[in-house]
Design a protein around this nucleic acid. Structure first.
Lengths: 222, 222
DNA sequence: GGAGTCAAAATTATCTATAATTTTAAAAGG
DNA sequence: CCTTTTAAAATTATAGATAATTTTGACTCC
């Protein structure tokens, strides 16, 4: 009945592995062993290797010839990099999307914001946040741009899940509403400026470590 | 002695195919048949399939499950999209690179511009142009950003090779020198503004078709 | 006890083989 | 003559097997 858009085993594996990496179930640096993964998915390792190539392109894994594939690690520099790339690309997308935004889309985006408010955990909150961004940007109709933004969102979510601090979401919800208000009034420049700051804001705080030195943690929240 | 950075067969195949697509030796829409390519490279089709996944991620090929892989086609909308993405990402990179630029780097960039002036054909000119951009942007040290820009440069080169018009290069050389002059004086904002316009400029002209209707052609020249 | 060495085990990269699907082209029917 | 059907050929996707490399871990020697 419903036909999955991507129906190869390789794409299914890459989706599942990407999700695990983003959620932190697979730790940075962890080895991805093709035979083990093949066994888990009840396939041979050929589609597994193809999935690895996609993860590599998304920046979620790194592959060293003959030495296998590992989950990509990240640091503050990369968090900053992803935040800044998202800022400029999302602003670009919004400027093109603006003329195609309908009240219905903006209502849906507001609904996503409300769902974020009510979210029970970080994952639900992140899902709502991503939907908000997708809703207001997708009408730009630029496929390559939207694909890049999606990959950057995955990276952002990774950082977020690894370092969530309650309280951060308040700022986000406020920004979302400001962006929507500006868009409703046709103030595209204002909306773009708010979006730019919003995405670039990086949450920081001390790691609530039980033992050892409390190192600093950080994440893109918008 | 010299060790190739990528030593798997798959990566070699993807490099060669990417080059052929960019140069236009493989036309948009052309089918990439794994067995034929495997035979040409004296391998099986397993590494060929891995190479396909990379080309797909770079936006040079599109894959339809069970129906094979084709060279991606493009239109004016995508040329614009790539130009605008390059504009915002290269400006971002330049702003970070600026503080790390040395006179030696700027001299090398000027040399690249001179080589572009003297280039005998489009391919040599494109190579010099890309080197110019890489030289002034690489010092930003942002790996993900630079990788994205590289992919966009490949797409740009594709458009360029498919629609070269003599005369376009004059504008580029002028822009390059203006950017370098601004950077030498520490005027980063001015350099960034020039770069932004430079990359976004799209060359257009009538196709010099021998027969049939002269349709319009276009390319990113910067 | 620790550094270095070497062999066994695990793992990667690739090839060959096979099943399933799509493309093609030819034949039949209107 | 054009459409539809149908069978053959080509092609894709995956499985299973093999060679080469890397990792692991025990053992020796200092």
């Amino acid at each position: 009945m419903s036909k999955e858009p991507e129906d190869t085993i390789a794409s299914r594996i890459s989706r599942v592995l990407a999700d695990r990496i983003v959620r932190g179930e697979l730790a940075p640096g962890a080895r991805l062993r093709q035979d083990h993964i093949a066994e888990e998915f009840q396939t041979s390792h050929v589609p597994v290797r193809e999935a690895f190539r996609r993860l590599e392109a998304q920046g979620l894994a790194i592959s060293e010839p003959r030495r296998g594939v590992r989950v990509a690690s990240f640091d503050l520099a990369e968090v900053r990099e992803v935040a800044e790339m998202r800022a400029v690309l999302e602003v670009l997308a919004l400027r093109h999307a603006a003329r195609h935004l309908t009240p219905a889309i903006l209502d849906a985006a507001e609904e996503a914001t409300r769902e974020g408010d009510a979210a029970a955990d970080v994952h639900a909150w992140e899902e709502a946040n991503r939907r908000f961004h997708r809703l207001i940007l997708a009408p730009c109709g630029m496929r390559r741009l939207l694909a890049s933004i999606d990959d950057l969102h995955a990276a952002s979510a990774r950082f977020l899940f690894s370092a969530w601090q309650s309280g951060w979401e308040k700022r986000t919800d406020h920004d979302h509403r400001a962006i929507l208000a500006a868009l409703r009034q046709g103030k595209t420049d204002e909306a773009a400026a708010t979006l730019q700051k919003h995405v670039q804001w990086i949450g920081r705080g001390p790691q609530p470590a039980k033992n050892g030195a409390p190192r600093e943690i950080f994440a893109i929240v918008g």
